[in-house]
Amino acid sequence: MSGPAHRPGEHVRPPGGAAALVCGETVGEDRVDALLAAAPPRDREGRPESLARAERQRRRWATQVVVVDELARRACAERGTAPPQEVPQSLLPAVAAGDVADLGSIVAVALARSPAARALLASLEGEQEVPEWAVREYYGNNRDRFLTSDALRRGVEPFDEATPEDFLPYERVREGIVRELRRAAGRRAFFDWLDRSRSAVVYAEGYEHPGDPAHPDHEHRH
């Protein structure tokens, strides 16, 4: 059952020590604490005020990773997709305090940590249809990627002096192109899903997105 509706940007602290509400249900602070403990910061130098700010941002960053995992678990349940086995803690990457506002790092660590996020990405990738025209267009527009070994040794310019014999045949590289285009489309679908799903999240104060301008020390980097 969904909880009460909240206005976008409204700060709440649900009972029970929650970091966020996802579809009205609580995501506990303990899950954020567990990620922070599993991925301790590498940066321990600097002024106390700078370190305090970095730690506040790191907590917000960790909340985003946990929220992506929770959203992915729900999406997998709706799709009937079973996530694979959990990742051993020893394989989780350490996270530097200076990287906490990097959106790419949020998704990268979520995928490294969350079996549900990986399962969802794989499912979305498998659903992507790659039309033949797109494969042929890629082959034609990226001729430098399909030079033969001999042509590479001779330093052939793929868009100038090359002849048809200087390129790998389309039939030989087609499946690889399909896999690459399907993978890219799957990633776009994953990011589209995540953007839509985040609208169902309400964060407790101190757990907002690190790039949210509503809090004073926000930071947004790519």
Score class of each variant (00 low, 15 high):
57 Q>T: 04
58 R>H: 00
58 R>F: 00
59 R>V: 03
59 R>D: 01
59 R>F: 00
60 R>Q: 03
61 W>I: 05
61 W>S: 10
62 A>D: 03
63 T>M: 04
63 T>I: 06
64 Q>F: 04
64 Q>N: 09
64 Q>M: 07
65 V>E: 00
66 V>N: 00
66 V>T: 00
66 V>H: 01
68 V>F: 04
68 V>L: 05
69 D>L: 02
69 D>G: 02
70 E>D: 11
70 E>N: 08
71 L>C: 03
72 A>C: 06
72 A>Y: 01
72 A>F: 01
72 A>K: 04
73 R>F: 06
73 R>E: 05
73 R>N: 07
74 R>S: 01
75 A>D: 04
76 C>I: 07
77 A>R: 14
77 A>G: 06
77 A>T: 05
78 E>P: 05
78 E>Y: 05
78 E>T: 06
78 E>C: 09
79 R>C: 08
79 R>H: 09
79 R>I: 01
80 G>T: 04
80 G>D: 06
80 G>V: 05
81 T>G: 09
82 A>I: 11
82 A>M: 11
83 P>D: 01
83 P>M: 06
84 P>H: 02
86 E>V: 13
86 E>S: 13
86 E>Q: 11
87 V>S: 07
88 P>G: 01
88 P>M: 03
88 P>L: 01
89 Q>N: 13
89 Q>L: 15
89 Q>V: 15
90 S>F: 14
90 S>Y: 13
90 S>I: 10
90 S>A: 13
90 S>H: 14
90 S>C: 14
90 S>G: 10
91 L>C: 13
92 L>I: 01
92 L>A: 07
93 P>V: 09
93 P>A: 08
94 A>T: 15
95 V>W: 09
95 V>M: 12
95 V>C: 15
96 A>I: 10
96 A>T: 14
97 A>L: 14
99 D>E: 13
99 D>C: 10
99 D>F: 11
100 V>L: 08
101 A>V: 00
102 D>I: 03
102 D>F: 11
104 G>I: 09
105 S>G: 14
105 S>P: 10
106 I>L: 14
106 I>H: 15
107 V>A: 09
107 V>W: 07
107 V>C: 09
108 A>F: 11
108 A>S: 15
108 A>H: 13
109 V>P: 12
110 A>T: 02
110 A>Y: 00
110 A>R: 01
110 A>G: 06
110 A>W: 00
110 A>M: 01
111 L>S: 12
111 L>D: 10
112 A>M: 14
112 A>H: 11
112 A>Q: 12
112 A>E: 13
112 A>Y: 07
112 A>S: 13
112 A>F: 09
113 R>E: 08
113 R>G: 05
113 R>C: 04
113 R>S: 08
